[in-house]
Amino acid sequence: MKIITSGASYLDIDAYACCIAYAELLNLQGIPARAVSSAKPNSSVSPTVLSWSAAFQRYTPQANDAFVLVDVSDYHHFDPLVVLDQVVEVIDHHPGYEQYWAERLGCAADIRPIGAAATLVFQRWQAAGLLSRMSEQSAALLATAILDNTLNFTGQMTTELDVRAYDLLAQRANLAANWPERYFLECQAAIEADLQAALAADLKRFKPDSNLPQVFAQMTVWDADGLLHNHCNEICAWMAGQGDDWLLNVISISDGKSCLLAEPEASQQTLNRLLPLQWQAAMAIVKPSMLRKELLMLGLNLNAV
């Protein structure tokens, strides 16, 4: 049995979609597979997405299980059910562990700079000639994951492959033309309904050699200005409770910017090594918007200099 899973802390829409859609493809190809996760979906898996009832499956460990990791390649953050020596495939777009997996898995490690891991899963469906048999549910999930991870195609890592994949998947899923705006507004409403849970559900901790603040949260909303106007004090208090070196990246889809919120001066200085930033109190604006993985790449590149 192939177990398709992702990270330990949370499932964002990219991981969620990839697990479901890749397990479906493997089963269509006659390869027994299950989408499994110990983590809960974060706010990027919006209420409408949840209403599509894409189900993860129960899992009882078996000695001969093989694990496929999607949207994650850092083995420090794998779902705890994963047996590292039994990982047979990795599909990811986050930097840092390409060489490690290339040495272990060869071409079964597909880690590429691309907008969404969902695009890589889409390509597997395309290569198998089975797009016409993909469920509308999987098509909608993959399309939405591409929307989210490319920041509605404004993100700097967006490629033509992402754009083409979305077009074909949106047609397959019969998604409405206004789905992107509806989706991001839903995500923002879910975040504001339980702000602390949303922060916790998309927070990563980095080591000092990453050249990033050690506590790094991220959220994607339609209107960052509105969210920060209403909730900045609550956000800062909660983030300060997670450590004295922190950053929140609030990505604003409607106006294509990132609002970097970092009260500690040391955190601001860390970021100043990566980008030419102008801080106003605890805030710096980046246009076009940037994802956490893009900032991570800048930090890794700084180590290589």
Rank of each mutant, 00 (worst) to 15 (best):
A284P: 04
I191G: 06
K207P: 01
A54M: 02
T119A: 06
L161S: 14
D14I: 08
Y100S: 01
A197G: 00
Q171D: 11
R104T: 04
I91Y: 07
A145N: 09
Q218T: 11
K293E: 06
A108P: 02
S258M: 07
T220R: 02
L147N: 07
A140I: 11
Q278L: 11
R182D: 09
L199V: 02
I13S: 09
E265D: 13
Q86E: 13
D162I: 05
L185P: 00
Q188V: 08
H229S: 13
L212C: 08
Q29P: 07
A117L: 12
D85G: 15
Q86K: 15
P208E: 01
C19L: 08
C19Y: 02
C18P: 12
Y75L: 09
Y75T: 03
R273T: 12
A117S: 15
A118W: 08
L212P: 07
Q242I: 03
L228T: 04
A282R: 12
E103R: 15
V70A: 05
L247S: 01
L50D: 00
Q278G: 10
D148H: 12
A139R: 08
L260Q: 03
R58Q: 14
N27C: 08
Y22G: 08
A224S: 15
Q126T: 01
M290V: 10
E186R: 06
S267R: 11
I3H: 01
Q269S: 10
R133G: 04
A266T: 15
S254V: 09
L50E: 03
T60P: 00
R292W: 04
C187P: 00
L120Y: 02
Q137H: 08
F153T: 03
S210V: 00
K257F: 04
Y59G: 08
N27Q: 09
L69R: 01
E160Y: 09
S138F: 11
P80H: 07
Q126S: 10
H231A: 12
P288N: 04
Q188D: 05
K293V: 10
S73Q: 08
A102P: 02
F184C: 08
P47K: 06
P47R: 06
A165S: 11
L277W: 03
Q123V: 01
F153P: 08
Q218E: 08
